[in-house]
Amino acid sequence: SCESSKDHSEELDMTFHLFICALAGAGAAVIAMIHYLMVLSANWAYVKDACRMQKYEDIKSKEEQELHDIHSTRSKERLNAYT
Rank of each mutant, 00 (worst) to 15 (best):
M14R: 15
T83I: 09
A26C: 06
Y56A: 15
D58K: 08
D49E: 12
V30K: 11
E3A: 07
D69V: 01
A32W: 12
E11A: 09
Q54T: 13
A45R: 09
M53A: 10
H71S: 08
D13E: 14
L37N: 05
D7P: 00
R74G: 03
A24R: 06
R74C: 10
D13Y: 11
A32T: 14
L12H: 10
A22D: 08
A81K: 01
E10C: 08
R74Q: 13
E3M: 04
E63W: 04
N43P: 07
L67M: 03
L79D: 03
L12A: 13
K48H: 11
D69H: 01
L18F: 14
A50C: 09
K62C: 01
L23H: 04
F19N: 15
A42D: 04
K76W: 00
A32M: 13
N80G: 00
S61L: 04
S75I: 00
C2Y: 10
Q65F: 02
F16G: 06
L79S: 01
S4K: 10
S9N: 12
F16K: 12
A45C: 07
M33K: 14
S4I: 10
A29E: 07
I59W: 12
S9V: 12
Y36Q: 05
C21P: 07
S1V: 11
A24W: 02
N43S: 09
I59T: 13
E77P: 06
Y46K: 15
I70N: 04
E63F: 03
N43D: 09
H68F: 03
M33A: 15
E66K: 01
N43W: 07
F16V: 08
E66A: 02
E10N: 09
T15L: 13
I59C: 11
Y56N: 14
T83P: 00
L40S: 08
T15K: 13
M14T: 13
I70P: 00
I31Y: 14
N43F: 08
L67Y: 05
D7L: 07
C21I: 12
M14V: 11
L23W: 01
S4Y: 08
I59G: 09
Y36S: 06
K55I: 13
T15C: 11
I20M: 13
Q54G: 12
K60W: 07
W44E: 10
Y82I: 03
A24T: 07
V39Y: 06
Y82H: 00
I70R: 03
F19G: 15
I34G: 10
A50K: 08
A32G: 13
T15R: 12
M14G: 11
I34T: 13
M53D: 10
Y36M: 05
I34Y: 12
I59L: 14
E57S: 02
Q65W: 01
D13P: 06
K6D: 04
E66S: 01
K60L: 07
I59Y: 12
C21D: 14
E63K: 06
S75L: 00
G25K: 06
S4M: 09
A42G: 04
I31W: 13
D69G: 01
G27I: 01
Y46H: 14
A22I: 08
H35S: 15
E11N: 11
K76C: 00
M14H: 14
K6N: 04
K62L: 02
H8G: 08
K62T: 02
F19A: 15
